[in-house]
Design a protein around this nucleic acid. Structure first.
Length: 552
RNA sequence: GGCGACGUAGCUCAGUUGGUAAGAGUGCUCGACUCAUAAUCGAGAGGUCGUGGGUUCGAGUCCCACCGUCGCUACCA
């Protein structure tokens, strides 16, 4: 085995502002977890972090709409998100929030380092101010008539009718979304991160990523070619956010979520290192991931997040220096429902809570993993999920385990037989399983998780085929010795196949661990003869598509 | 409006740098088997690769136009 690698599995930070849907799950959290689990089995040192983003406009909007404090919104949804991770078996090393003291501290340290390095400066701009509620208004809080198409409900950032990008100053008859008052332009001073300092460096960086998915690379490079990176304000006139580490702007200014959310990857790593769950017990051990050129950083995000992870975050890291840049950004496309992007707020597609009500966690994971939108938007539906579960997971893998364990239970005194077979068909099957480990490992390395799942399925089908060819139920009557050999071989194959499935199916894998023993790595291990297997119960149950409220 | 992606068997999708008669899973048909969650295994049928041009000895794979779907457009992240 090769030297263990320090792998950072960095996963997009969900807003703690509402229900998450299975598009989010399939886009980032599930593939990240599958990848992390496989990397651990491979022997790599995995640090998988993320957390809830507690800042940002959606949260303040929701809090205002409900008349509560933003923290109330955060507490409610962060708790719900945590429960879902637990039910789904998402194996975080740390899932935190951007609301911690640690995150504020790390953000401020980064700010200061970049400030020292000359990449942050102060600028004055004009923004709309609502005289009634005495607040500066974000672009989308200004509404008015679109100067291009005359649409009356255009927002300050964009017109929903004609799709044009707007500057709120250009709106005809602008009004505040908060109070309806007529906003007035006022000068305000903010800190800007000089992203433009890094145009060339980012370009060079992207040139080393020619293996990235085309849609990721095209998007990032296109951005650079069109206008290049532009300096952006990283503070706002708001109350909900992280304090500035310098106080010369006056009161009422906070660091804006765009800048601080991505810093969560680093701050969470530091929080983990200082926590009890760090086996090394060394608060400085985050450096083994962040200041180690041999480490591998893999970011799991949806495609809407590409500019932040392929452009802005690397630039911010460069602005500090000596911190590891993203190595892989296998951004997924969207899961679509009847042609449209999933959206919990618009009621398109299943929320995670809905899906967990309808399906076993492993079954849901399987169905989504088989349909990960790795290359293109992928259409899923309740029926499709149920079909995948019944026709593929239960029929091929669940049934295989059940049929073999049942025969062993009946014919081998309910314990693992010590009767390895040596016929060519025996060794062929086991060789095929062993080869699948190599094939699937390559697929994991290339972030082709769907293909890796297919590889696992292929070995299950091969094992089913082996049984149909050898017919141990018939041998049991004519040649019991050979029957035991066949069952031993089939069980050996399953002992490998279940490891191939383990990253995808943590819950049922744990059940098999109890029966066959805990696997020590990414390989097929010898059986433990004499180990009692008990009376088998099916790993999965079929979904009743008739009675579920499935629209056909 | 601009940019980008996609449009391949009924369904969900693969198809490396253009090149031996277009693939997988599922569904469907037929056969085998009956240990197993009416599960499994084998065989077969099924596609003018959105439309129309072009480049090439040769294009699903490159170029142009068009049609259709979707996404992004930097104060949502």
């Amino acid at each position: 085995m090769t030297e263990p690698v320090n792998v950072l599995v960095a996963v997009a930070w969900p807003y703690a502002s509402g229900a998450r849907h299975i598009g989010h799950l399939a886009g980032a959290y599930l593939p990240a977890d599958i990848f992390a689990r496989q990397q651990r089995l491979l022997g790599n040192r995995v640090l998988m972090v993320s957390g809830s983003d507690v800042h940002g406009t959606p949260i303040t909007v929701r809090a205002e709409a409900e008349g509560v404090d933003p923290q109330d919104i955060v507490d409610r949804y962060h708790g719900e998100i945590l429960r879902h991770w637990e039910q789904l078996g998402i194996s975080w090393d740390l899932y935190t929030t951007t609301g911690t003291e640690n995150h504020a501290k790390v953000t401020q340290e980064m700010f200061l380092a970049q400030f020292e390095n000359g990449h942050i400066d102060k600028r004055v701009s004009e923004q709309f101010f609502d005289p009634e509620v005495q607040r500066f208004l974000p672009d989308r809080y200004v509404e008015g008539e679109c100067p291009y198409c005359g649409y009356a409900e255009a927002r300050g950032d964009q017109c929903d009718n004609c799709g044009k990008t707007l500057d709120p100053i250009d709106l005809i008859n602008p009004r505040s979304k908060l109070s309806g008052a007529i906003p007035e332009p006022r000068e305000t001073e903010h800190f800007y991160f000089r992203y433009s300092d890094f145009n060339q460096q980012i370009r060079n960086y992207l040139d080393t990523k020619s293996h990235w998915r085309p849609h990721v690379l095209n998007f990032a490079k296109g951005w650079l070619e069109d206008e290049g990176l532009q300096d952006r304000a990283i503070t706002r006139d708001i109350e909900w956010g992280i304090d500035l580490p310098v106080d010369d702007l006056g009161p009422g200014k906070k660091i804006y979520v765009w800048y601080d959310a991505v810093i969560g990857y680093l701050s969470a790593s530091k929080e983990w290192a200082a926590s009890e769950t760090n086996p090394a017990g060394d608060p400085e051990s985050w450096r083994e991931w962040w200041e180690n050129p041999a480490a591998r950083h893999v970011y799991f995000i949806g495609k809407d997040n590409i500019p932040f992870h392929a452009l802005f975050w690397p630039a911010q890291l460069m602005g500090v220096g000596n911190l590891h840049l993203p190595d892989e950004i296998p951004a997924n496309q969207y899961v679509t429902f009847k042609g449209g992007k999933a959206s919990a707020s618009r009621g398109v597609g299943l929320t995670i809570a809905d899906a967990l009500d309808m399906f076993q966690p492993d079954a849901l994971r399987f169905a989504l993993a088989a349909a990960l939108p790795e290359q293109a938007d992928t259409e899923v539906s309740d029926e499709e999920i149920g079909r995948r579960i019944n026709e593929e997971l239960v029929a091929t893998w669940g049934n295989l385990v059940n049929r073999v364990l049942s025969m062993v239970n009946k014919n081998c005194d309910a314990q693992i037989p010590d009767t390895p077979g040596s016929d060519p068909e025996d060794s062929d099957l086991l060789a095929a399983v062993d080869a699948a480990f190599v094939e699937a490992a390559d697929q994991f390395h290339a972030s082709e998780l769907r293909a890796a799942l297919r590889t696992a399925m292929k070995t299950a089908q091969a094992t089913n085929g082996y049984l149909n060819a050898t017919e141990p139920w018939r041998l049991q009557k004519t040649d019991p010795n050979r029957a035991s050999e066949v069952l031993h071989t089939a069980l050996s194959a399953i002992n490998g196949v279940r490891v191939l499935f383990a990253p995808f199916l943590p819950w049922s894998s744990a059940t098999l661990d109890e029966i066959l023993g805990v696997p020590s790595g990414w390989k097929r291990e010898p059986l433990v003869p004499g180990r009692p297997i008990g009376k088998p119960t099916p790993l999965f149950t079929k979904v009743d598509l008739e009675t579920s409220d499935v629209e056909v």
